[in-house]
Amino acid sequence: MAARLLAHEVADLCLGKPSLNSLSISTTIRHALTALKSTDDTHISIWSCDHHHSKLDQSFVINECRCIGKICMVDVICYLCKEENIKNPALALDCPVSVLLSHETNVVRHVEPATSLVEAIDLIIEGAQNLVVPIRSRTTINSKRKQNVHHQELVAHTTHAGLGEFCWLTQEDVIRFLLSSIGSFSPTAAYSVESLGIIDIDIKTANYHSPASTAVELIKNSLVDQTSVAVTDDDGILIGEISPFTLAYCDETTAAAITTLSAGDLMAYIDCGGPPEDIVKLVEMRLKERNLKGMLDEFLMNSTILSSSSDDELSPLGEKMKSLRYSRSSSYSARITRRAEAIVCYPGSSLVAVMIQAVAHRVSYVWVIEEDCSVVGIVRFSGMLEVFRAHLESMMN
C-alpha cells in the first residue's frame, strides 16, 4: 500500500478536474468582478503572456504564457477598503487586476503531470496554495460548454496557443487524496494534534467590539496564509470568525460593511442567508453620516435587492444584479453552507478527526480551543502535510 501511494503522480489527482478560468493581467477589476460573479469557482487564475507580432512573417508569436497568481472576491473587498478607494470605488474598479495580486511569488506554482505526490506536498509546505497542471487529454471540448458571449469575452478557458488546457490542484485536493489512503499513515493519523506539534499559536484575532476596518490587514494576511481571523471577547473567548472562505462568496459591497461595522456586526452581515435588514440599514446610515457617496451609491444598488419584496420593484440593473447574486449563492449552497461560526477542535483531537472536519466544511484550517472556549491556536493543512511528508519520508528510507 505504501509503495502504491508513493508511486502516485500529480496527474492522478487531476482526474475529473475542470479546466481553469483565466484572465489577463491587464483586465480591469470591474471586468474581473463580473467574471467572479459568473463562475462557480471562488478564484480565477491570472495569466501573463509575452505576446508579440512578428514583422517578418506577420505571425503572432508567444514567448511565454504563465499563471502568475489568482484573485478572489476577498482581494477586491480588501482593495476597496483602502483609504484612497473608499470615497471613489468606481474609479478603483477601473484599475488592472495586477494591483490585487499577492506579493508572495510562490502562491501559484506550475508543475508537470509527472510531478510526484511527494514533490507536490513539498511545494505546498513551501507556501504554494495552487499547483497549475497541464491537462494531458480531454474528451469533452469547450464547445460543449454553453456560455454567453459577454462572459466568454471576460473569462476564457486556459488554452494558450497550443499549450493546451490547465487545471489546478489545491491544498484541499491533496488532503482529500491522503484521507482516502489514511490507513497507510497508521498510527500517526490517530495521534492528537497537540502531540504532533502542529498547533500554530501565531493566530490573528479581532475583538468583537472593535471596528471591522482594523481587521482588513489581518483578513489579507489570513487569505495568504489560508487561515482566518478569530473574533474574541475581552477575555479571549472565541465567538466566531471573519473567514476569507466565507467572504469569497460575498460581493464588493461588503467593503462598505467593513468600513462601517464592528467585527461582531460584520460576522452577522457575512453569515449565510444574507445580512439582516437592520444591519443593512445601519451600514446605509453610517455611509451617509460619513458622506461616502461613491460607496453609498454602490451599496444601495445592491442592498435594494436584499430588501425588495417584489421583483416588480427592481430596475433592469437590479434584475441583472439579482440574477448574478442568486446564481452565485445557489451554486455555493450546492457545495457547502459556510457560516461565520468557527470550526473548532481540541488539543486532544486526533489528526484524522481534524482533517475530516476541515474537509467537511471546505476550509484549510481548524481552530483549537480549550474547554472554556479560549483560543489555543490553529491547525492548518500545511501543518498536516508536514506530518504526512515525514511519514512518507520514513517509507522511502
Results as ranks from 00 to 15, higher is better:
16 G>N: 12
8 H>E: 07
303 S>W: 06
27 T>L: 14
338 R>Y: 00
209 H>N: 12
92 A>C: 08
94 D>C: 05
391 H>S: 10
329 S>G: 03
51 H>E: 13
51 H>Q: 09
115 T>D: 04
233 D>E: 05
55 K>W: 06
274 G>V: 03
200 D>E: 11
277 E>F: 00
299 F>I: 03
46 I>P: 01
2 A>R: 15
314 L>F: 05
331 S>Q: 11
170 T>P: 04
80 L>G: 07
96 P>V: 08
284 E>V: 05
171 Q>K: 09
122 D>W: 00
176 R>F: 01
105 T>M: 12
135 I>G: 09
51 H>P: 00
49 C>Y: 02
69 G>Q: 06
146 K>R: 13
32 A>D: 04
279 I>A: 00
364 S>E: 14
325 R>H: 09
113 P>E: 09
11 A>L: 10
134 P>G: 05
38 S>V: 01
351 L>I: 07
355 M>V: 05
13 L>Y: 01
215 A>S: 15
338 R>K: 15
96 P>S: 09
328 R>L: 13
273 G>T: 04
120 A>F: 05
55 K>D: 14
224 V>K: 10
312 D>L: 11
95 C>W: 06
64 E>Q: 15
77 I>L: 08
367 W>K: 11
379 V>F: 03
38 S>E: 10
182 I>K: 13
243 S>L: 03
62 I>R: 14
191 Y>V: 08
233 D>L: 02
358 A>T: 04
288 K>Y: 06
367 W>P: 04
109 R>A: 15
123 L>D: 10
122 D>Q: 07
232 T>Y: 01
387 V>S: 09
217 E>M: 08
214 T>E: 15
27 T>G: 01
29 I>D: 08
352 V>Y: 10
120 A>M: 12
337 T>E: 14
281 K>S: 07
137 S>W: 07
268 A>V: 01
361 H>V: 05
41 D>I: 00
176 R>Q: 14
389 R>A: 08
301 M>I: 04
280 V>A: 02
289 E>A: 13
362 R>C: 06
304 T>K: 14
125 I>K: 09
239 I>D: 02
341 E>I: 03
136 R>F: 02
332 Y>H: 15
248 A>L: 07
69 G>I: 03
186 S>G: 00
259 T>M: 08
352 V>D: 14
61 V>Q: 13
337 T>G: 02
61 V>W: 03
371 E>N: 08
79 Y>N: 10
358 A>E: 07
32 A>M: 04
304 T>W: 14
307 S>R: 14
251 D>R: 12
189 A>Y: 09
220 K>Q: 12
143 S>R: 10
142 N>E: 14
46 I>K: 06
